[in-house]
Design a protein around this nucleic acid. Structure first.
Length: 482
RNA sequence: CGGGAUGUAGCUCAGCCUGGUCAGAGCGCCGCGUUUGGGACGCGGAGGCCCUCGGUUCGAAUCCGAGCAUCCCGACCA
């Protein structure tokens, strides 16, 4: 048997690509940097979508849809925004064989077209807050691409809200950051750090950007969701104004926030192991797979009905279960196959089990035979699987948290120590920081590490900045990032 | 857009130096049979404008030129 998945310690990047391919999440499209999301990968995305959408609605948001094409002039209305995005725009100049009067930008994000629309919709303080989300695709002409993590076209949601006051808008920005963190932690089992972006890293056109940062299996950071407080920047650019109670015309304060198909990549990189995917049960398209085992037709006649009975029991208990009826591959092949696909629980049923009225359960979060448990009573199989799913969900979160803590350096004293750590153990460096934007840029150039965020939960108190030597209360997390 | 590499079967690749039984292997796929508790085996079979265009030559997957595409490493990024 040829190894289909490169071990992580050999080449993490290859491992990632191998898992994407072997688990049939996605494949490269004929156009550079674009991918076909295969059914199994798309189902994962649907789980992300559903988990978020439910939370958006619970916090008072509604969905709408805005157009793919945006007049070029719209982008130019917000100076920082156009500067940030123009290098990566795809622009349509010909339509129906005719050169267009004004080129159309394929949206890289929709602040501008939505800002334009909001200016028409908002007249009074009674129209506020306006809380809208859209599920859409966007295009950014990136140089370097990787499936899910960075593609020319990607799927995402972008929330766009307008508020009467800065306080309300900031509250919304942080509320959605909390929604993202709640989803990441409780659904995706990804422990994320909530923080504020540095000036260098913030969204083009934002006053403040907030982020949830996750650590991947190789110690690199991945920005997994962002929430921006846009102040009056876009309101002024697009003339989004309302009359307040005192009949005074005011600019709105707006926000925007997004999570993309990148989240699927995060799930792969946070939980995956050398066997392939490990999916958190809450999100797994298939939570439990049933593998029947038999020798010859006599065995089959007794095993198959029991396997079907287990499938019915699991489905009846609301578990996403699948009976693997394939006859052309061996049970051993199926074990490996479903492990690679990250299915959290496997139920094995053979003649011996049927005789004893039991099944074997195998949990994906523990390696190899360590995760096998024999003698589970047939009567209680649904309950047992359900308990195990809950346990795996918690276990994956715990493992990811431990991995992050084990790969975080708390506090460095000098820049040389900082560089030393980045080159040797890598991971996150969480430490006091009082440097300037230029200092940050220099560190990025010299070490490839960036400030991932200023964590919101910082409780370190005052300390000394390793770079400037100044005393400060500000704490930053540095890391190499995707 | 710089630096490196590669385009041959569905996939991974060999063949190219040294032009002529060179259209090949493994995996995958299809059929039949035996198998099935950790990636089974035997036999038979299908499948290829050898990236494109042009040139050299009696003859090109092979040599030369141009183009296109992809991958890896950098600068930019959800």
């Amino acid at each position: 048997m040829a190894e289909r998945i490169t071990p992580r310690h050999v080449d993490y990047s290859r491992w990632y690509l191998d898992v994407i391919r072997e688990a049939e999440l996605a494949e490269n499209a004929p156009v550079r940097g674009c991918m076909v999301i295969r059914p199994y990968g798309y189902t994962l995305w649907e789980a992300v979508r559903d988990g978020l959408d439910r939370r958006f609605k619970a916090t008072g948001h509604v969905n709408a849809y805005f157009p793919l094409f945006i007049p070029m002039s719209f982008l130019q209305k917000e100076a920082e925004h156009v500067e940030g995005f123009s290098p990566e725009l795809a622009i349509v100049t010909i339509g129906g064989g005719e050169t267009l009067e004004e080129p159309l930008v394929v949206r890289p994000t929709s602040e501008t077209i939505i800002g334009h629309t909001y200016s028409r919709w908002i007249r009074s303080y009674r129209d506020l807050p306006l809380l809208i989300n859209q599920w859409a695709n966007v295009v950014r002409w990136e140089m370097r691409t990787r499936p899910f993590l960075r593609t020319l076209e990607f799927l995402w949601q972008e929330g766009h809200t307008a508020h009467a006051t800065a306080e309300e808008a900031i509250e919304e920005t942080l509320r959605m950051l909390d929604v993202y963190a709640d989803f990441a932690i409780n659904d995706a089992a990804i422990p994320v750090i909530k923080g504020r972006k540095s000036h260098n890293e913030k969204f083009a056109g934002a006053v403040d950007s907030y982020t949830i940062e996750a650590m991947m299996g190789n110690g690199w950071a991945l920005q997994s969701g962002t929430s921006h407080y846009l102040g009056e920047n876009f309101a002024r650019a697009f003339d989004i104004k309302y009359l307040d109670r005192d009949n005074v015309l005011q600019y709105c304060h707006t926000t925007s926030w997004g999570v993309s198909t990148r989240m699927v990549g995060a799930i792969v990189m946070v939980h995956g192991d050398d066997q392939g995917l490990r999916l958190p049960p809450v999100m797994a398209p298939i939570q439990a797979v049933i593998v029947p085992i038999w020798r010859g037709d006599a065995d089959r006649a007794v095993v198959e009905p029991v396997a079907e009975q287990v499938e019915r029991a699991l489905l009846g208990a609301g578990i996403r279960a699948k009976l693997d009826r394939r006859d052309e591959v061996t049970p051993g092949f199926k074990f490996n196959d479903w492990e690679m696909r990250g299915v959290p629980v496997r139920v094995e049923i053979g003649p011996r089990d049927v005789q004893q009225g039991t099944v074997v359960l195998a949990r994906r979060d523990l390696p190899g035979k360590e995760g096998k448990q024999a003698g589970i009573s047939l009567d209680g199989v649904a309950a047992a699987v359900n308990d195990l799913l809950n346990e795996i969900q918690a276990s994956l979160l715990r493992q990811a948290t431990e991995h992050r803590e084990a790969n975080t350096t708390f506090g460095v004293r000098s820049y040389s120590e900082f560089r030393e750590i980045l080159e040797t153990r890598g991971g996150f460096i969480r430490t006091h920081w009082a440097g300037s934007n230029e200092d940050e840029a220099r560190i990025k150039e010299e070490t490839k590490a960036t400030i991932r965020c200023f964590p919101l939960d910082a409780d370190e108190g005052e300390g000394v900045c390793f770079y400037t030597g100044a005393r400060t209360r500000q704490v930053a997390i540095f890391a190499r990032a995707y």
